[in-house]
Design a protein around this nucleic acid. Sequence first.
DNA 1: TTGAAAGCGATACCAT
DNA 2: ATGGTATCGCTTTCAA
Lengths: 326, 326
Amino acid sequence: MTIKDVARVAGVSASTVTRALTLPELVHPATRERVLRAAGDLGYHPNRAARGLITGRTGNIGLLVPDLGNPFFPSVVKGVQARAHEADLAVFLADADEDSAAEAGLVRKLSQQVDGLLLCSPRMSDDELRSLAGDTPIVLVNRRIARVPSVTPDFPDGMRQAVGHLTALGHRRIAYVAGPRGSWANRERTRTLRMVSETAGVDLVEIGNVSPQFEGGVSAADRVLAASVTAVIGYNDLVALGLLHRFAARGVAVPARISVLGFDDIAFAAMSHPALTTVALPKELAGRAAVDLLLRLISDPGRPGVLRRDLPTQLMVRGSTGPANR
Amino acid sequence: MTIKDVARVAGVSASTVTRALTLPELVHPATRERVLRAAGDLGYHPNRAARGLITGRTGNIGLLVPDLGNPFFPSVVKGVQARAHEADLAVFLADADEDSAAEAGLVRKLSQQVDGLLLCSPRMSDDELRSLAGDTPIVLVNRRIARVPSVTPDFPDGMRQAVGHLTALGHRRIAYVAGPRGSWANRERTRTLRMVSETAGVDLVEIGNVSPQFEGGVSAADRVLAASVTAVIGYNDLVALGLLHRFAARGVAVPARISVLGFDDIAFAAMSHPALTTVALPKELAGRAAVDLLLRLISDPGRPGVLRRDLPTQLMVRGSTGPANR
DNA sequence: TTGAAAGCGATACCAT
DNA sequence: ATGGTATCGCTTTCAA
């Protein structure tokens, strides 16, 4: 089923079939009609590889995530998919398994057969990313570096909401369970949290770097309790859920004795007991926005200035936060 | 950066470069050396689209899932990815968003540029699937139909373990909250549960078809309580977690008053309070096995007989099940 | 408005 | 063991 078959059935040349399909205004309406019908009848779809060979466009994009096991990323992926399919793009997915070394390899393999790349929370170094951005269009999600297009949540505002909520409840001494050292999101959350705490006059106790998983939270819980704080913010919801879990196991009442707050608003935040108060990031929207940026980047490569999009966050107040105990 | 550049640098013809790269034993060791070095120096990687055009192999596979929002599927995807990358395959991912109509379209679009397709819990009709299987190599995951290769968990055994566990605890009257009517997994779970219940002499109360989500479980919980059973099996973990949630909200003690059991063993099953007893399906393994089958199918198309793989399940006993109350 | 021919990058076949 | 040439399916000149 090739363009020739369609040409034969429609009684025209291959060139005309191409035109009818891609530049309809260049062919006679009657001819166009015949071609389209022939194509329809035969169920013809152009071979994208062959097309890509000559146009230089594959119609594919690559999406790299650090770990599909963290529900944050599937949500982003859904957003990417939705927008990509609207734009008639197919999506290659690669999971780096939290391995920054693996990232580079996956990216290299993918970059050959895509028009552009979406890198979600990449662990790679700034330099690697910048050099990559020189070779192929890329958009960063959840990471921001100079001169590379990116989509990021408005962490400062999210932190302001979080801390504002806690101080309104009377909390004055708060712990933060930090995530991976190398993670931009963690640096950013830490940085903004420090600023906001300073401003609000709250004591901030920072607790170790843990892996951004449930287990990370579990492992930090006892240290949090020992820090005599009345509230704790987890690096992300998984960590916060781990805290919740360990608190429950130790018989520590949440929020009576300690309030717990997460980041991301993964689906399970709303399902836990008590339900987790968290700063919602617009995950699917981030995916969609990233594709939009990438599309612009692809169609308009010599663009001056950097494309950047900052997304709003929203505090979701639920059962895991309450008045400070005194 | 094409094969010609490499050829020029190595001082050989393009044909020789190809050979050196794909059939090394056909070229003189010294020549091979020169070619490989040239390729290495130039950072050459063959263009897969061009290669695919002539070989008919793209080196890509497609993976369709109904909903990445259900943590079951990201796990399968991880398994697929891992195995695919080992085999040097790239993976197109498509999310059908629980829409059986969308499935067909996505599959058609993908099928053009892949060597084969992995369909995870597809909602399509048997006929559609069989016809699809005629056109392109496909492997079903979590669904079994005649004459199409598939990877499925051993549901009968899983159900046997589940019911065996409950009866051992003294339960004699059990509810099952059924999943989507159209789902093969649901039909299978229902069917085997009936058989096993019959054999074990337990009363089985089947409760409505709910969507395979947390909300589905929440919505069924009150009906479960009204059915005066001492234990309930949810269609999957999400449903079971929904049950747990609603029970907690109503002050119903689990497992004291009622035991709750799920299916899948998603990560959050272990994180809830009480932790959810569930039948673990080998999700990543299923993904890997599916890729294996697909590889065999691709390399060996005229194969007689159907490839099929049945995967073991494992009951994970946790806090949500306990002795029957009397 | 349409067709013929060249060529995208790689491989396979046929010579040598 | 190596090179030349046709070819995969499509798009893009260039002519007509």
